[in-house]
Design a protein around this nucleic acid. Structure first.
Lengths: 218, 218
DNA sequence: GACTATTTAGAGTATATACTCTAATAATAT
DNA sequence: ATATTATTAGAGTATATACTCTAAATAGTC
């Protein structure tokens, strides 16, 4: 692997593990048994590393969120989208943690992230509309305003589920959050659909939710 | 005002304005035209200042979230609770921004915050249950599981609405977020109730939502 | 093998940050 | 007034952090 890519990878791992705020460029270099000089030969500054990581994240999620619109969407589709997105979220979990600071310190990133948000919201909307399509659509027809609200709610829960887990569950015992716990966010997202399900799918969603049900209690 | 209180107040203002990460103890002292030595005479370290601010935040929200349970709740009650909570959120808006880091660096805070979360979730639950009570309850009866999901969804949207505004709307033009924009989160929270409203309240909630409707488009 | 361009090491720097220390000042009690 | 205590100033320190600079090593080319 190229040095540049090694730097990106090690940075991502350290960021995910310790939080961007707690990882310095010197740490990254040390982690790779590399001199700071070398790191700075490949990246002008820390922001550039973060930006590069964001580009990867963006690519991944944009790829996942290519929503089929030539046919109605079914529950399998929904699960696939959710699993994919939560997978991306897990791989780049540091990102939403220090998001505000990151956007404050990099204008490029701020602009790109805003556009990224718009695309994601649009993707979510397409999914919901796709679930309404067809004779036996999963979701009932909804007023556009309801859809918009729901899209935003889904986005907020998706992007902040990780933070919720960390703050509400990581106690003195310092339970580490794992990918499995993150997937419980899927249960939470599915709950949004419940009031709008067509009768045929009520039981199906229940079964589905069972697969992602949290086994902890707050 | 006592010096100690001045420090707390100035810190809160600076934190809210610039983010905790960007505010040093020296900044706080300078802002008060005070020596660092003096600041450290009153607080052992930065964490102690933050902790003290959290205690105030906690007190405020706990106060707001004393939910009447001797009668059914109506829409006025709901609005009061929402307005109050969003008001607290605004006054201490720095807090949820760097939450994960703050909790990582202060065990006391971590523990307290976790308990605080539990109380808040419980408060939200009481509100929802209160809205179901009575002959003309605002909300239909719901399975407990639905309530639990909804409680968590409400919490996630409430605590992260600010971050959403900042990241999705603060662009190059650097629109500052104001209290009014924050209140649009109330619109978003009200959307959770829509599918569960008893018929008598459908129109009422619509009217209410209109009052908080965002005037921007994403 | 000689020459050039790329990559890397590692010591070094300027700045920032949390926090300390001591002496001076102000407030309070007797 | 004097003694005591609480408060404040402000210079200073140890450490961290992002980043630079130069020389050496390595790779690639003719």
């Amino acid at each position: 692997m190229k040095t540049r890519d090694k730097i990106i990878l090690a940075s991502l791992e350290l960021f995910n593990d310790k939080g961007e705020r707690n990882v310095t460029t010197n740490h990254i270099a040390a982690d790779l048994s590399m001199s700071p000089g070398n790191l700075y030969y490949h990246f002008r500054n820390k922001s550039d590393i973060i930006y590069e990581i964001f580009i990867q994240y963006e690519l991944l999620v944009d790829h996942y969120l290519q929503i089929t619109d030539d046919r109605p969407l079914n529950l399998n589709d929904l699960v696939y989208y959710l699993e994919s997105v939560f997978d991306g979220l897990w791989s780049y979990r540091f990102f939403h943690r220090d998001l505000e600071f990151l956007l404050d310190s990099d204008e490029r990133l701020r602009k790109d992230y805003r556009e990224f948000t718009v695309r994601c919201l649009d993707g979510i909307k397409k999914i919901l509309k796709g679930l309404q399509k067809g004779l036996d659509g999963v979701l009932k027809d909804l007023e556009d305003e309801h859809i918009e609200s729901m899209v935003l709610n889904v986005w907020l829960v998706v992007t902040n589920w990780m933070a919720y887990l960390k703050t509400a569950h990581a106690g003195d015992d310092n339970i580490a959050i794992d990918k499995g716990m993150l997937r419980q966010g899927i249960y939470q997202i599915l709950s949004f659909t419940v009031p709008y399900l067509t009768p045929a799918y009520v039981e199906e969603i229940k079964k589905l939710q069972d697969q992602y049900r949290p086994n902890y209690s707050i």
